[in-house]
C-alpha cells in the first residue's frame, strides 16, 4: 500500500487566489521524497491538504488507504506527522515533555504508555535530557528536533517536513539530516534547499504553478539546468552536479 496518494487536487483560497491546479502524486511506503519548488508554487498549500487542514476544492487525498474526509480526520491526523517550518508554531506547551505528550494524549494515551511514547520520541531525536526544559530556552536547531519529536510520538505513517533546513547552522543541519536518515518512516520533505534534498532523498518532485512539473531521481532532476531554471530553482553558488552516467 502507498503511504500517500494525491489525485487531481485543486484548491483556491477564500480570497479567490488559486494555488493548486490539479496535483497528482504517489509516495510508496518507506520512501524519502523531496518536494521542490520556488516560493509561491503552492508547496505549503499542498502540505495543508495532507492532513485535512484545508479541504480540497477538487480531487482527493488518500493516506495509507484512508481517504481524507471530515469523518476520517482524526485517523488521518494521527498518520500524517506535519513538522512546521517555524518550530515556535509547533511548540506551545510549557515544557518539552508536555509538548511531546500533547499529540499522544489527544490520541487517548495515558500514564505509562504516554510516558513511553514521549521518551521514545525524544530519544529518537537525541533530546531526552531536555525533557523538562521550556522549549523557548532551547536553541533553534534543538527546537526543530523537538518539533520532529512531537510528531514522531504519534507514530505517523508519513512524516511531512516543511523547509526542515531553514535557519539551521551547518552543524544543526547535519545533525537533523542524521536523525532523518535514522528514522524508519516515509518522509516527504518540502524544500527549496536543493543540496539537502540531494543528500537525503532519492526521489524528488517539482511543484510549479500548482501542478507537478517533474518527478524523478533527485540527482537527475538537479543535473538538468534547463529544468531547474524553468521552475525558478537554483543550486547554490559553486555547486554543480554532474549528469548521471548512462546506465550500462
Amino acid at each position: 500500500m502507498n503511504s500517500l496518494e494525491v489525485s487531481r487536487l485543486a484548491y483556491a483560497y477564500p480570497d479567490g487566489t488559486q494555488a493548486l491546479f490539479g496535483v497528482d502524486l504517489t509516495i510508496g511506503r518507506g520512501e524519502r521524497v523531496a518536494l521542490l519548488g520556488p516560493n509561491g508554487a503552492g508547496k505549503t498549500t499542498l502540505v495543508m491538504h495532507l492532513n485535512g487542514i484545508l479541504t480540497p476544492g477538487h480531487g482527493t487525498v488518500t493516506v495509507a488507504g484512508t481517504p481524507v474526509r471530515k469523518d476520517t480526520l482524526k485517523e488521518v491526523r494521527r498518520r500524517v506527522g506535519l513538522v512546521f517550518q517555524d518550530p515556535d508554531d509547533q511548540l506551545f506547551m510549557p515544557t518539552v515533555r508536555d509538548d511531546v505528550a500533547f499529540g499522544p494524549a489527544n490520541m487517548g494515551l495515558t500514564g505509562e504508555e504516554l510516558e513511553r511514547a514521549v521518551k521514545g520520541a525524544l530519544e529518537r531525536v537525541g533530546m531526552l535530557e531536555a525533557a523538562d526544559r521550556p522549549p523557548h530556552h532551547l536553541s533553534f536547531g534543538q527546537r526543530r528536533r523537538v518539533a520532529v519529536a512531537t510528531v514522531l510520538a504519534m507514530e505517523p505513517e508519513i512524516l511531512v517536513l516543511d523547509e526542515p533546513s531553514s535557519n539551521l547552522d551547518p552543524a544543526a543541519r547535519r545533525e537533523l539530516a542524521e536523525i532523518l536518515r535514522s528514522l524508519d518512516v516515509t518522509v516527504l520533505m518540502v524544500t527549496h534547499d536543493l543540496p539537502y534534498a540531494l543528500e537525503l532523498c532519492e526521489r524528488s518532485l517539482i511543484l510549479s504553478d500548482g501542478v507537478i512539473a517533474a518527478d524523478g531521481p533527485t540527482r537527475e532532476l538537479l543535473a538538468d539546468p534547463e529544468l531547474l531554471a524553468a521552475h525558478r530553482l537554483e543550486l547554490p553558488y559553486g555547486f554543480a552536479i554532474p549528469a548521471p552516467a548512462e546506465p550500462a
Binding site: 487531481r8 485543486a10 483556491a12 477564500p14 479567490g16 488559486q18 491546479f21 490539479g22 476544492g57 477538487h58 501542478v211
Partner: peptide, 14 residues
C-alpha cells in the same frame, strides 16, 4: 464569498 474558478491541468476551466 464569491465563486471559485478551478482550472484543471489540461487547461479546461470549470
Amino acid at each position: 464569498a464569491s465563486s471559485l474558478v478551478l482550472r484543471g491541468p489540461d487547461g479546461a476551466t470549470t
